[in-house]
Design a protein around this nucleic acid. Structure first.
Length: 497
RNA sequence: GGAGAGGUGGCCGAGUGGUUUAAGGCGCACGCUUGGAAAGCGUGUUUCUUCGAAAGGGGAACGGGGGUUCGAAUCCCUUCCUCUCCGCCA
Protein backbone atom coordinates (compact mmCIF):
# COMPACT_ATOMS: atom_id res chain seq x y z
CA UNK A 1 0.00 0.00 0.00
CA UNK A 2 1.33 3.43 -0.94
CA UNK A 3 1.63 6.00 1.82
CA UNK A 4 -1.15 8.54 1.62
CA UNK A 5 1.10 11.41 2.64
CA UNK A 6 3.39 10.52 -0.26
CA UNK A 7 0.47 10.73 -2.69
CA UNK A 8 -0.71 13.95 -1.07
CA UNK A 9 2.63 15.63 -1.60
CA UNK A 10 3.72 14.01 -4.88
CA UNK A 11 0.51 13.51 -6.78
CA UNK A 12 1.89 14.26 -10.26
CA UNK A 13 5.06 12.21 -9.88
CA UNK A 14 3.05 9.26 -8.56
CA UNK A 15 0.58 9.42 -11.44
CA UNK A 16 3.36 9.70 -14.04
CA UNK A 17 5.04 6.69 -12.54
CA UNK A 18 1.85 4.63 -12.28
CA UNK A 19 1.02 5.41 -15.91
CA UNK A 20 3.95 3.20 -16.90
CA UNK A 21 1.72 0.30 -15.90
CA UNK A 22 -0.57 1.25 -18.78
CA UNK A 23 -3.77 1.27 -16.76
CA UNK A 24 -5.49 4.68 -16.66
CA UNK A 25 -7.62 3.59 -13.66
CA UNK A 26 -4.72 4.10 -11.28
CA UNK A 27 -4.55 7.86 -11.80
CA UNK A 28 -8.25 8.10 -10.93
CA UNK A 29 -7.72 6.06 -7.79
CA UNK A 30 -4.92 8.40 -6.73
CA UNK A 31 -7.11 11.46 -7.07
CA UNK A 32 -9.95 9.72 -5.26
CA UNK A 33 -7.61 8.77 -2.42
CA UNK A 34 -6.32 12.34 -2.08
CA UNK A 35 -9.90 13.65 -1.88
CA UNK A 36 -10.92 11.05 0.69
CA UNK A 37 -7.84 11.80 2.75
CA UNK A 38 -8.68 15.48 2.77
CA UNK A 39 -12.19 14.70 3.95
CA UNK A 40 -10.94 12.26 6.54
CA UNK A 41 -8.60 14.81 8.06
CA UNK A 42 -11.18 17.53 8.21
CA UNK A 43 -13.59 15.15 9.95
CA UNK A 44 -10.91 14.17 12.38
CA UNK A 45 -10.08 17.75 13.28
CA UNK A 46 -13.74 18.48 13.93
CA UNK A 47 -14.26 15.26 15.87
CA UNK A 48 -11.17 15.80 18.02
CA UNK A 49 -12.56 19.16 19.08
CA UNK A 50 -15.85 17.60 20.19
CA UNK A 51 -14.14 14.79 22.03
CA UNK A 52 -11.93 17.31 23.82
CA UNK A 53 -15.09 19.08 25.01
CA UNK A 54 -16.59 15.81 26.23
CA UNK A 55 -13.41 14.87 28.04
CA UNK A 56 -13.28 18.24 29.73
CA UNK A 57 -16.93 18.11 30.78
CA UNK A 58 -16.60 14.55 32.08
CA UNK A 59 -13.85 15.66 34.41
CA UNK A 60 -15.95 18.50 35.65
CA UNK A 61 -18.82 16.11 36.29
CA UNK A 62 -16.45 13.95 38.28
CA UNK A 63 -15.58 16.96 40.41
CA UNK A 64 -19.23 17.89 40.96
CA UNK A 65 -20.13 14.34 41.93
CA UNK A 66 -17.39 14.28 44.54
CA UNK A 67 -18.44 17.54 46.08
CA UNK A 68 -22.10 16.54 45.93
CA UNK A 69 -23.19 19.23 43.44
CA UNK A 70 -25.74 17.00 41.76
CA UNK A 71 -27.62 19.74 39.91
CA UNK A 72 -24.54 21.15 38.21
CA UNK A 73 -23.53 17.64 37.27
CA UNK A 74 -26.95 16.93 35.83
CA UNK A 75 -27.10 19.97 33.56
CA UNK A 76 -23.58 19.27 32.35
CA UNK A 77 -24.59 15.73 31.56
CA UNK A 78 -27.35 17.03 29.32
CA UNK A 79 -24.92 19.21 27.44
CA UNK A 80 -22.53 16.30 26.95
CA UNK A 81 -25.39 14.18 25.63
CA UNK A 82 -25.99 16.78 22.90
CA UNK A 83 -22.35 16.92 21.89
CA UNK A 84 -22.32 13.16 21.88
CA UNK A 85 -25.02 12.97 19.24
CA UNK A 86 -22.91 15.13 16.95
CA UNK A 87 -19.76 13.19 17.68
CA UNK A 88 -21.50 9.88 16.96
CA UNK A 89 -22.55 11.16 13.55
CA UNK A 90 -19.02 12.28 12.84
CA UNK A 91 -17.62 8.95 13.96
CA UNK A 92 -19.87 7.14 11.53
CA UNK A 93 -18.84 9.44 8.69
CA UNK A 94 -15.22 9.00 9.65
CA UNK A 95 -15.48 5.20 9.63
CA UNK A 96 -17.17 5.34 6.26
CA UNK A 97 -14.56 7.65 4.73
CA UNK A 98 -11.72 5.64 6.22
CA UNK A 99 -13.05 2.39 4.78
CA UNK A 100 -13.42 4.01 1.36
CA UNK A 101 -9.90 5.42 1.59
CA UNK A 102 -8.43 2.05 2.53
CA UNK A 103 -10.35 0.40 -0.30
CA UNK A 104 -9.03 2.92 -2.76
CA UNK A 105 -5.46 2.63 -1.54
CA UNK A 106 -5.61 -1.17 -1.80
CA UNK A 107 -6.38 -0.76 -5.49
CA UNK A 108 -3.30 1.33 -6.25
CA UNK A 109 -0.19 -0.70 -7.08
CA UNK A 110 3.34 0.33 -6.25
CA UNK A 111 4.90 3.18 -8.21
CA UNK A 112 7.44 1.75 -10.66
CA UNK A 113 11.06 2.79 -10.25
CA UNK A 114 12.43 5.36 -12.71
CA UNK A 115 14.34 2.63 -14.58
CA UNK A 116 11.16 0.63 -15.30
CA UNK A 117 10.12 0.89 -18.95
CA UNK A 118 6.50 1.64 -19.74
CA UNK A 119 4.75 -1.30 -21.35
CA UNK A 120 1.67 -3.41 -21.53
CA UNK A 121 2.85 -6.99 -21.45
CA UNK A 122 5.85 -9.26 -21.20
CA UNK A 123 6.71 -8.31 -24.79
CA UNK A 124 7.84 -4.94 -23.47
CA UNK A 125 10.22 -6.36 -20.88
CA UNK A 126 13.81 -5.32 -21.34
CA UNK A 127 16.58 -7.89 -21.57
CA UNK A 128 19.53 -6.43 -19.69
CA UNK A 129 21.92 -9.38 -19.48
CA UNK A 130 22.58 -12.73 -21.08
CA UNK A 131 25.09 -15.39 -20.17
CA UNK A 132 26.10 -18.84 -21.39
CA UNK A 133 25.68 -20.63 -24.68
CA UNK A 134 22.65 -22.61 -25.66
CA UNK A 135 23.87 -26.21 -25.85
CA UNK A 136 23.85 -27.92 -29.23
CA UNK A 137 21.73 -30.98 -28.67
CA UNK A 138 21.16 -33.96 -30.90
CA UNK A 139 18.14 -34.04 -33.19
CA UNK A 140 16.35 -36.47 -30.92
CA UNK A 141 16.85 -34.42 -27.77
CA UNK A 142 14.04 -34.95 -25.28
CA UNK A 143 11.94 -32.58 -23.19
CA UNK A 144 12.40 -33.02 -19.45
CA UNK A 145 9.23 -35.03 -18.91
CA UNK A 146 10.54 -37.76 -21.23
CA UNK A 147 13.95 -37.71 -19.57
CA UNK A 148 12.34 -37.84 -16.13
CA UNK A 149 10.31 -40.83 -17.13
CA UNK A 150 13.21 -42.57 -18.91
CA UNK A 151 15.37 -42.47 -15.80
CA UNK A 152 12.47 -42.70 -13.36
CA UNK A 153 13.18 -39.35 -11.70
CA UNK A 154 9.68 -37.94 -11.42
CA UNK A 155 6.33 -39.71 -11.43
CA UNK A 156 3.58 -37.35 -12.49
CA UNK A 157 0.96 -40.08 -12.83
CA UNK A 158 1.56 -41.33 -9.32
CA UNK A 159 1.20 -37.78 -7.99
CA UNK A 160 -2.04 -37.41 -9.91
CA UNK A 161 -3.29 -40.65 -8.38
CA UNK A 162 -2.37 -39.78 -4.80
CA UNK A 163 -3.22 -36.08 -4.92
CA UNK A 164 -3.99 -34.58 -8.30
CA UNK A 165 -2.39 -33.02 -11.34
CA UNK A 166 0.47 -30.71 -10.52
CA UNK A 167 1.62 -32.64 -7.45
CA UNK A 168 4.38 -34.96 -8.67
CA UNK A 169 6.41 -37.55 -6.82
CA UNK A 170 10.15 -37.12 -7.17
CA UNK A 171 11.59 -40.59 -7.04
CA UNK A 172 15.03 -42.08 -6.44
CA UNK A 173 17.74 -39.95 -7.98
CA UNK A 174 15.12 -37.34 -8.86
CA UNK A 175 14.37 -36.88 -5.18
CA UNK A 176 18.07 -36.83 -4.29
CA UNK A 177 18.73 -34.22 -6.94
CA UNK A 178 16.00 -32.03 -5.44
CA UNK A 179 17.61 -32.36 -2.05
CA UNK A 180 21.00 -31.53 -3.57
CA UNK A 181 19.64 -28.35 -5.14
CA UNK A 182 17.98 -27.26 -1.89
CA UNK A 183 21.18 -27.78 0.09
CA UNK A 184 23.30 -26.04 -2.49
CA UNK A 185 20.98 -23.04 -2.58
CA UNK A 186 20.76 -22.80 1.21
CA UNK A 187 24.53 -23.07 1.64
CA UNK A 188 25.02 -20.33 -0.94
CA UNK A 189 22.53 -18.11 0.84
CA UNK A 190 24.29 -18.69 4.15
CA UNK A 191 27.59 -17.80 2.54
CA UNK A 192 25.96 -14.58 1.37
CA UNK A 193 25.06 -13.72 4.97
CA UNK A 194 21.45 -14.83 5.22
CA UNK A 195 20.12 -16.43 8.37
CA UNK A 196 18.31 -19.65 7.63
CA UNK A 197 14.81 -20.31 8.95
CA UNK A 198 12.27 -23.07 8.54
CA UNK A 199 8.99 -21.17 8.61
CA UNK A 200 5.43 -22.44 8.99
CA UNK A 201 3.87 -23.51 5.70
CA UNK A 202 0.49 -22.04 6.57
CA UNK A 203 -0.20 -18.43 7.52
CA UNK A 204 -3.10 -16.42 8.90
CA UNK A 205 -5.03 -13.67 7.19
CA UNK A 206 -3.01 -10.83 8.70
CA UNK A 207 0.15 -12.24 7.18
CA UNK A 208 -1.49 -12.56 3.79
CA UNK A 209 -2.45 -8.89 3.97
CA UNK A 210 1.01 -7.92 5.21
CA UNK A 211 2.79 -9.11 2.09
CA UNK A 212 0.01 -8.21 -0.34
CA UNK A 213 -1.55 -11.57 -1.27
CA UNK A 214 -4.76 -10.45 0.40
CA UNK A 215 -7.32 -9.00 0.07
CA UNK A 216 -7.32 -9.26 -3.74
CA UNK A 217 -5.43 -12.34 -4.71
CA UNK A 218 -6.84 -15.05 -2.49
CA UNK A 219 -7.53 -17.11 -5.62
CA UNK A 220 -3.81 -17.80 -5.77
CA UNK A 221 -3.66 -19.51 -2.39
CA UNK A 222 -5.05 -22.72 -0.97
CA UNK A 223 -7.26 -21.98 2.00
CA UNK A 224 -7.89 -24.26 4.97
CA UNK A 225 -11.40 -23.27 5.89
CA UNK A 226 -11.66 -25.14 9.19
CA UNK A 227 -8.60 -23.29 10.54
CA UNK A 228 -8.85 -20.02 8.64
CA UNK A 229 -5.31 -20.46 7.37
CA UNK A 230 -3.68 -20.19 3.97
CA UNK A 231 -1.01 -22.47 2.49
CA UNK A 232 1.94 -20.30 1.59
CA UNK A 233 2.45 -19.52 -2.11
CA UNK A 234 6.06 -18.58 -1.32
CA UNK A 235 8.33 -18.40 1.74
CA UNK A 236 8.24 -14.63 1.26
CA UNK A 237 4.96 -14.57 3.16
CA UNK A 238 5.99 -16.14 6.50
CA UNK A 239 9.53 -14.73 6.37
CA UNK A 240 8.61 -11.12 5.61
CA UNK A 241 5.83 -11.27 8.20
CA UNK A 242 8.44 -11.96 10.88
CA UNK A 243 8.83 -8.21 10.74
CA UNK A 244 5.16 -7.27 10.87
CA UNK A 245 4.47 -4.67 13.61
CA UNK A 246 8.16 -4.46 14.44
CA UNK A 247 10.25 -1.36 15.07
CA UNK A 248 13.92 -2.10 14.49
CA UNK A 249 16.92 -0.15 15.68
CA UNK A 250 18.72 1.41 12.73
CA UNK A 251 21.80 -0.59 13.72
CA UNK A 252 19.89 -3.84 13.23
CA UNK A 253 19.54 -3.19 9.50
CA UNK A 254 19.91 -4.95 7.17
CA UNK A 255 18.02 -8.08 8.18
CA UNK A 256 18.85 -10.97 5.85
CA UNK A 257 16.76 -14.12 6.12
CA UNK A 258 16.52 -17.13 3.83
CA UNK A 259 14.42 -20.25 3.89
CA UNK A 260 13.57 -23.33 1.94
CA UNK A 261 9.89 -24.22 1.71
CA UNK A 262 7.48 -26.02 -0.53
CA UNK A 263 5.20 -23.47 -2.21
CA UNK A 264 1.54 -24.05 -2.95
CA UNK A 265 -0.26 -22.30 -5.79
CA UNK A 266 -3.72 -22.95 -7.09
CA UNK A 267 -2.94 -21.63 -10.59
CA UNK A 268 -6.62 -21.98 -11.33
CA UNK A 269 -7.38 -22.30 -15.00
CA UNK A 270 -3.88 -22.82 -16.33
CA UNK A 271 -3.48 -26.00 -18.36
CA UNK A 272 -1.82 -26.94 -21.60
CA UNK A 273 1.53 -27.39 -23.24
CA UNK A 274 3.10 -24.23 -21.84
CA UNK A 275 2.54 -25.39 -18.30
CA UNK A 276 3.21 -29.08 -18.81
CA UNK A 277 5.13 -31.18 -16.27
CA UNK A 278 7.72 -29.16 -14.32
CA UNK A 279 6.89 -25.93 -16.14
CA UNK A 280 4.11 -25.21 -13.68
CA UNK A 281 3.08 -27.08 -10.55
CA UNK A 282 0.65 -26.67 -7.68
CA UNK A 283 3.38 -27.63 -5.22
CA UNK A 284 7.02 -26.86 -5.82
CA UNK A 285 10.19 -26.23 -3.84
CA UNK A 286 11.97 -22.93 -3.57
CA UNK A 287 14.69 -21.23 -1.57
CA UNK A 288 13.78 -17.63 -0.94
CA UNK A 289 15.97 -14.75 0.24
CA UNK A 290 14.49 -11.73 2.00
CA UNK A 291 16.09 -8.48 3.10
CA UNK A 292 14.80 -5.70 5.32
CA UNK A 293 16.94 -2.65 4.67
CA UNK A 294 17.46 1.08 5.16
CA UNK A 295 15.66 3.03 2.41
CA UNK A 296 18.93 4.56 1.21
CA UNK A 297 20.40 1.12 0.60
CA UNK A 298 17.62 -0.77 -1.09
CA UNK A 299 18.73 -0.41 -4.71
CA UNK A 300 22.31 -1.39 -3.91
CA UNK A 301 20.91 -4.38 -2.08
CA UNK A 302 18.75 -5.26 -5.07
CA UNK A 303 21.89 -5.29 -7.23
CA UNK A 304 23.67 -7.52 -4.73
CA UNK A 305 20.75 -9.95 -4.78
CA UNK A 306 20.91 -10.03 -8.57
CA UNK A 307 24.63 -10.84 -8.33
CA UNK A 308 23.92 -13.64 -5.86
CA UNK A 309 21.46 -15.28 -8.25
CA UNK A 310 23.75 -14.79 -11.24
CA UNK A 311 26.39 -16.70 -9.30
CA UNK A 312 24.03 -19.60 -8.69
CA UNK A 313 23.08 -19.92 -12.35
CA UNK A 314 26.66 -19.59 -13.54
CA UNK A 315 27.77 -22.32 -11.15
CA UNK A 316 24.97 -24.52 -12.43
CA UNK A 317 26.33 -23.84 -15.94
CA UNK A 318 22.91 -22.91 -17.28
CA UNK A 319 22.39 -20.33 -20.03
CA UNK A 320 20.26 -17.52 -18.68
CA UNK A 321 19.08 -14.00 -19.26
CA UNK A 322 17.88 -11.22 -16.98
CA UNK A 323 14.81 -9.14 -17.79
CA UNK A 324 13.81 -5.83 -16.32
CA UNK A 325 10.02 -6.08 -16.14
CA UNK A 326 8.03 -3.33 -17.81
CA UNK A 327 5.24 -1.49 -16.00
CA UNK A 328 2.50 -3.74 -17.31
CA UNK A 329 4.22 -6.96 -16.30
CA UNK A 330 5.47 -5.69 -12.94
CA UNK A 331 3.86 -7.26 -9.88
CA UNK A 332 1.28 -5.21 -7.99
CA UNK A 333 3.49 -4.71 -4.95
CA UNK A 334 6.84 -4.22 -6.68
CA UNK A 335 8.68 -1.05 -7.67
CA UNK A 336 11.35 -2.85 -9.67
CA UNK A 337 11.63 -6.51 -10.58
CA UNK A 338 14.27 -8.49 -12.40
CA UNK A 339 13.22 -11.85 -13.76
CA UNK A 340 15.79 -14.56 -14.39
CA UNK A 341 15.07 -17.04 -17.15
CA UNK A 342 17.08 -20.14 -18.03
CA UNK A 343 17.08 -21.62 -21.50
CA UNK A 344 15.66 -25.09 -21.61
CA UNK A 345 17.08 -26.67 -24.73
CA UNK A 346 14.73 -29.65 -24.93
CA UNK A 347 11.69 -27.39 -25.14
CA UNK A 348 13.60 -24.61 -26.88
CA UNK A 349 12.17 -21.94 -24.60
CA UNK A 350 13.04 -19.65 -21.73
CA UNK A 351 11.76 -20.59 -18.27
CA UNK A 352 11.43 -18.12 -15.39
CA UNK A 353 13.36 -19.40 -12.40
CA UNK A 354 13.69 -16.31 -10.24
CA UNK A 355 12.09 -12.98 -9.62
CA UNK A 356 13.95 -10.39 -7.56
CA UNK A 357 12.07 -7.33 -6.38
CA UNK A 358 12.37 -4.16 -4.41
CA UNK A 359 9.06 -3.28 -2.78
CA UNK A 360 10.37 -0.07 -1.25
CA UNK A 361 7.80 0.87 1.43
CA UNK A 362 4.81 -0.79 -0.25
CA UNK A 363 4.98 -3.90 1.92
CA UNK A 364 6.45 -2.27 5.01
CA UNK A 365 3.56 0.20 5.08
CA UNK A 366 1.13 -2.69 5.37
CA UNK A 367 3.45 -4.63 7.66
CA UNK A 368 4.11 -1.57 9.80
CA UNK A 369 7.78 -2.46 9.83
CA UNK A 370 9.79 0.59 10.75
CA UNK A 371 13.18 1.53 12.08
CA UNK A 372 14.18 4.14 14.63
CA UNK A 373 16.10 6.82 12.82
CA UNK A 374 18.29 9.04 14.99
CA UNK A 375 16.55 12.22 16.12
CA UNK A 376 13.80 11.63 13.58
CA UNK A 377 10.44 9.98 13.39
CA UNK A 378 10.29 6.27 12.85
CA UNK A 379 10.59 5.48 9.18
CA UNK A 380 9.31 2.62 7.09
CA UNK A 381 11.99 0.15 5.97
CA UNK A 382 12.37 -1.10 2.44
CA UNK A 383 11.71 -4.79 1.82
CA UNK A 384 13.17 -6.96 -0.93
CA UNK A 385 13.02 -10.57 -1.85
CA UNK A 386 14.10 -12.99 -4.51
CA UNK A 387 13.92 -16.63 -5.44
CA UNK A 388 17.30 -18.24 -5.04
CA UNK A 389 16.06 -20.35 -6.65
CA UNK A 390 12.82 -22.09 -7.66
CA UNK A 391 13.63 -25.74 -8.24
CA UNK A 392 11.38 -27.35 -10.85
CA UNK A 393 12.41 -25.31 -13.86
CA UNK A 394 16.05 -25.49 -12.82
CA UNK A 395 15.69 -29.25 -12.75
CA UNK A 396 13.96 -29.15 -16.14
CA UNK A 397 16.81 -27.12 -17.63
CA UNK A 398 19.50 -29.36 -16.13
CA UNK A 399 17.82 -32.48 -17.49
CA UNK A 400 17.23 -31.02 -20.93
CA UNK A 401 20.48 -29.14 -21.42
CA UNK A 402 22.80 -31.78 -20.01
CA UNK A 403 21.32 -34.79 -21.75
CA UNK A 404 23.43 -36.94 -24.00
CA UNK A 405 23.64 -40.50 -25.31
CA UNK A 406 24.99 -41.66 -22.00
CA UNK A 407 22.61 -39.92 -19.67
CA UNK A 408 22.33 -36.57 -17.91
CA UNK A 409 25.46 -34.89 -16.56
CA UNK A 410 25.10 -33.35 -13.11
CA UNK A 411 26.67 -29.87 -12.83
CA UNK A 412 29.99 -30.02 -10.96
CA UNK A 413 28.81 -27.72 -8.21
CA UNK A 414 25.97 -30.12 -7.36
CA UNK A 415 27.98 -33.33 -7.41
CA UNK A 416 29.15 -33.12 -3.78
CA UNK A 417 25.50 -32.69 -2.81
CA UNK A 418 23.95 -35.30 -5.11
CA UNK A 419 26.49 -38.04 -4.64
CA UNK A 420 26.36 -38.96 -8.33
CA UNK A 421 27.85 -37.31 -11.41
CA UNK A 422 25.61 -38.63 -14.08
CA UNK A 423 22.09 -39.98 -14.37
CA UNK A 424 21.89 -43.09 -16.52
CA UNK A 425 20.09 -46.39 -16.58
CA UNK A 426 20.62 -47.86 -13.16
CA UNK A 427 21.58 -51.43 -12.34
CA UNK A 428 18.12 -51.84 -10.93
CA UNK A 429 16.52 -50.72 -14.17
CA UNK A 430 18.72 -53.15 -16.10
CA UNK A 431 17.80 -55.98 -13.78
CA UNK A 432 14.15 -55.17 -14.16
CA UNK A 433 14.70 -55.19 -17.87
CA UNK A 434 16.11 -58.67 -17.70
CA UNK A 435 13.21 -59.80 -15.59
CA UNK A 436 10.79 -58.31 -18.07
CA UNK A 437 12.59 -59.99 -20.95
CA UNK A 438 12.43 -63.34 -19.25
CA UNK A 439 8.74 -62.90 -18.61
CA UNK A 440 8.24 -61.65 -22.10
CA UNK A 441 6.59 -58.50 -20.75
CA UNK A 442 9.23 -56.01 -21.74
CA UNK A 443 8.02 -52.40 -21.65
CA UNK A 444 7.81 -51.37 -25.27
CA UNK A 445 8.92 -47.81 -24.70
CA UNK A 446 11.99 -49.05 -22.86
CA UNK A 447 12.84 -51.41 -25.71
CA UNK A 448 12.47 -48.54 -28.13
CA UNK A 449 14.95 -46.56 -26.06
CA UNK A 450 17.41 -49.42 -26.16
CA UNK A 451 16.83 -50.50 -29.69
CA UNK A 452 16.96 -47.18 -31.46
CA UNK A 453 19.96 -48.61 -33.29
CA UNK A 454 21.82 -51.73 -32.38
CA UNK A 455 25.07 -49.88 -31.96
CA UNK A 456 23.49 -47.26 -29.72
CA UNK A 457 21.80 -49.85 -27.55
CA UNK A 458 24.88 -51.94 -27.08
CA UNK A 459 27.08 -48.93 -26.43
CA UNK A 460 24.63 -47.58 -23.93
CA UNK A 461 24.46 -50.80 -22.00
CA UNK A 462 28.21 -51.35 -22.12
CA UNK A 463 28.77 -47.85 -20.80
CA UNK A 464 26.28 -48.49 -18.07
CA UNK A 465 28.10 -51.64 -17.08
CA UNK A 466 31.43 -49.81 -16.98
CA UNK A 467 29.82 -47.13 -14.87
CA UNK A 468 28.43 -49.72 -12.51
CA UNK A 469 31.81 -51.36 -12.08
CA UNK A 470 33.55 -48.13 -11.17
CA UNK A 471 30.71 -46.68 -9.19
CA UNK A 472 31.59 -46.16 -5.56
CA UNK A 473 28.19 -47.21 -4.42
CA UNK A 474 28.41 -50.65 -5.99
CA UNK A 475 30.62 -53.22 -4.33
CA UNK A 476 32.69 -55.56 -6.46
CA UNK A 477 30.66 -58.46 -5.19
CA UNK A 478 27.44 -56.94 -6.38
CA UNK A 479 28.99 -56.04 -9.71
CA UNK A 480 30.07 -59.64 -10.13
CA UNK A 481 26.49 -60.76 -9.67
CA UNK A 482 25.10 -58.14 -12.02
CA UNK A 483 27.58 -58.54 -14.82
CA UNK A 484 26.38 -61.90 -16.16
CA UNK A 485 22.78 -60.76 -15.76
CA UNK A 486 23.46 -57.66 -17.76
CA UNK A 487 25.26 -59.72 -20.34
CA UNK A 488 22.16 -61.79 -20.68
CA UNK A 489 20.18 -58.59 -21.22
CA UNK A 490 22.46 -57.65 -24.07
CA UNK A 491 22.15 -61.08 -25.57
CA UNK A 492 18.42 -61.07 -25.19
CA UNK A 493 18.23 -57.69 -26.83
CA UNK A 494 20.33 -58.90 -29.73
CA UNK A 495 18.26 -62.02 -30.07
CA UNK A 496 15.04 -60.02 -30.01
CA UNK A 497 16.34 -57.87 -32.80
C1' G B 1 -11.10 -32.38 22.92
C1' G B 2 -12.32 -31.28 28.66
C1' A B 3 -11.35 -28.03 33.06
C1' G B 4 -9.06 -23.73 34.99
C1' A B 5 -5.92 -19.16 35.02
C1' G B 6 -4.31 -15.13 32.36
C1' G B 7 -3.17 -11.13 28.24
C1' U B 8 -1.34 -3.66 31.04
C1' G B 9 4.75 1.13 27.87
C1' G B 10 11.45 -2.17 25.91
C1' C B 11 10.98 -5.98 30.32
C1' C B 12 8.78 -7.27 35.29
C1' G B 13 4.54 -5.75 37.66
C1' A B 14 0.36 -2.60 40.47
C1' G B 15 -4.23 -1.20 39.21
C1' U B 16 -12.60 -3.80 40.58
C1' G B 17 -15.95 3.23 37.38
C1' G B 18 -13.70 9.73 38.21
C1' U B 19 -6.30 13.99 40.05
C1' U B 20 -4.57 6.94 35.67
C1' U B 21 -1.88 12.76 33.33
C1' A B 22 -1.01 4.11 33.92
C1' A B 23 1.99 3.39 40.60
C1' G B 24 6.58 0.89 41.66
C1' G B 25 10.83 -1.70 39.94
C1' C B 26 14.37 -3.20 36.04
C1' G B 27 16.68 -1.69 31.70
C1' C B 28 18.24 2.36 28.66
C1' A B 29 19.77 7.74 27.65
C1' C B 30 21.49 12.33 29.42
C1' G B 31 23.13 15.36 33.54
C1' C B 32 25.22 16.15 38.56
C1' U B 33 28.93 13.89 41.51
C1' U B 34 34.22 11.49 40.58
C1' G B 35 41.18 11.45 39.09
C1' G B 36 38.25 7.50 36.48
C1' A B 37 34.38 4.14 37.48
C1' A B 38 30.57 2.12 40.66
C1' A B 39 27.04 3.67 44.05
C1' G B 40 24.02 7.82 44.91
C1' C B 41 21.00 11.94 43.25
C1' G B 42 18.26 14.40 39.26
C1' U B 43 15.89 14.47 34.43
C1' G B 44 14.05 11.80 30.50
C1' U B 45 12.41 7.22 28.28
C1' U B 46 5.44 3.89 23.81
C1' U B 47 2.94 4.32 19.23
C1' C B 48 -0.43 6.36 15.70
C1' U B 49 -2.85 10.71 14.26
C1' U B 50 -4.40 15.93 13.73
C1' C B 51 -3.78 21.46 14.01
C1' G B 52 0.58 24.62 13.78
C1' A B 53 6.12 28.06 10.29
C1' A B 54 7.74 26.78 15.09
C1' A B 55 7.03 26.66 20.17
C1' G B 56 3.20 23.98 21.58
C1' G B 57 -1.90 22.21 21.69
C1' G B 58 -5.80 18.36 20.65
C1' G B 59 -7.48 13.16 19.72
C1' A B 60 -6.80 7.77 19.89
C1' A B 61 -4.57 3.19 21.78
C1' C B 62 -4.09 -1.40 28.36
C1' G B 63 -4.54 -8.58 22.87
C1' G B 64 -8.63 -7.59 18.60
C1' G B 65 -13.81 -6.16 17.79
C1' G B 66 -18.50 -4.50 19.85
C1' G B 67 -21.55 -2.65 24.05
C1' U B 68 -23.08 -0.07 28.94
C1' U B 69 -21.87 5.00 31.05
C1' C B 70 -21.47 12.03 31.46
C1' G B 71 -16.80 9.13 32.22
C1' A B 72 -13.96 2.23 31.16
C1' A B 73 -7.36 -0.72 31.81
C1' U B 74 -11.51 -1.54 35.39
C1' C B 75 -18.38 -3.68 34.08
C1' C B 76 -20.94 -6.76 29.92
C1' C B 77 -20.74 -9.52 25.09
C1' U B 78 -17.67 -11.66 21.40
C1' U B 79 -13.15 -13.30 19.30
C1' C B 80 -7.91 -14.41 19.13
C1' C B 81 -3.69 -15.79 21.77
C1' U B 82 -0.65 -17.67 26.07
C1' C B 83 -0.03 -20.72 30.39
C1' U B 84 -1.42 -24.99 33.94
C1' C B 85 -3.82 -29.76 34.61
C1' C B 86 -6.37 -33.97 32.18
C1' G B 87 -7.14 -36.78 27.56
C1' C B 88 -5.00 -38.03 22.74
C1' C B 89 -0.51 -38.17 19.96
C1' A B 90 4.75 -37.82 16.00
Amino acid sequence: MLEIHYLRENRDAAVDSLNKRCNPEYANHVDAAIELDKEKRSIQTELDGLLAEINKASKEIGGFMKTGKKDEAGSLKNRVAEIKIDSQKLKERQADVEAKLADTLYQIPNTPHESVPAGKSEDDNEEIFRSGDVPALAENALPHWDIASKYKLIDFELGAKVTGAGFPFYTGRGARLQRALINYFLDSARDAGYEEVIPPLVVNEASGIGTGQLPDKEGQMYFIESENLYLIPTAEVPITNIFRDVILAESELPKKVCGYTPCFRREAGSHGKEVRALNRLHQFDKVEVVQIVHPDESYHVLDSMVEHIKGLLENLELPYRILRLCGGDLGFTSALTYDFEVYSAGQKRWLEVSSVSNFETFQSNRLKCRFRADEKKNQLVHTLNGSALALPRILAAILENNQSETGVAIPKVLQPYSGFNNIEFSGKQLRNLKFDLENNSLDSQMVAEFMQTEREAVNKVIQSIEQLKTSKTVTKKKAAIWEPKIDSVINALKAKE
